[in-house]
Design a protein around this nucleic acid. Structure first.
Lengths: 136, 136
DNA sequence: TAATTTGCTTGCATTTTGCAAGTTATTTTC
DNA sequence: GAAAATAACTTGCAAAATGCAAGCAAATTA
């Protein structure tokens, strides 16, 4: 595996969070697991934002090494692997939800997508349960 | 001003949030404003994590351009400027809080700092009000 | 008036990201 | 059963972002 970004040592909880998932791609992978029910390398690769293959595999390995997701073989297809959120990964749901709320309030671009924003506002607890459960 | 990182165009609220503050430093500056009451360039520069001067000024300008913080002259010192969170910036408080909670639960390093974690758990609403008010 | 402080800028090396083109081990299709 | 397709990567290289160190001008303090 090639190198992962260096981690800071300040002890600050915000810095720990940023060291774990504070980059351009990690939370999008986690979003795909939670919101879109994606589970495999090629599903993640197909997302709208267009992550590069080497970055994707690096993030998957780093997130696995950090205990945020787990990897297992697909029992039905020997060349396929299934990624799932661990409990530590599922605990990111409130962060994802608050980002969705913030963007829902402040993203004024016409292209802004609002379905998830509406789902959060209509039933926050149900939405969180959905995010935690979608990746089992 | 030198170039700011490119923004994505997917319309996804999670991607919009990451484009706005999803890098190694932005949320640490916002933490300094909210949690530590810092307001000036040199106060941000003094934080434990050790941001470089060119990165700091770049992030301050980008966050200002994105409407997350505002810059004004210090009336008492003509070479000093005061940075403050806008309403859009203050609305990041719930995200910061959820990151603190997540790290408080999952950072097992002996060096992990817990005061803010305890403050959040003891009085979440009061803590959020403090974060929103500390930067006026 | 000589430091010192504040808020920057600049140049350059290192690290990370992004793109494109492989590669290998399975399935699928014909 | 051979050929094509698919899934999960790997590799090489260019571009962009980050990090480090040294400066610099205007305002303030000693």
């Amino acid at each position: 595996m090639d190198t992962e970004p260096k981690k800071r040592v300040s002890g600050c909880p915000v810095a720990y969070g940023l060291d774990s998932f504070g980059d351009r791609w990690s939370l999008l992978i986690i979003r795909d697991l939670m919101v879109h029910g994606k589970k495999t390398y090629s599903e993640f690769l197909g997302s709208d934002e267009g992550i590069a293959t080497n970055i994707l595999i690096n993030r998957l390995k780093t997130l696995e090494a950090d205990g945020i997701l787990s990897k297992s073989r697909d029992p039905d297809n020997r060349r396929s692997f299934t990624y799932a959120l661990t409990p530590k990964g599922k605990d990111l749901a409130p962060i994802v939800i608050e980002i969705i709320r913030w963007s829902g309030k402040h993203d004024d671009r016409p292209s802004a997508l609002k379905p998830a924003v509406r789902a959060v506002e209509e039933d926050p607890d149900g939405f969180e349960k959905r995010l935690r459960g979608a990746c089992d």
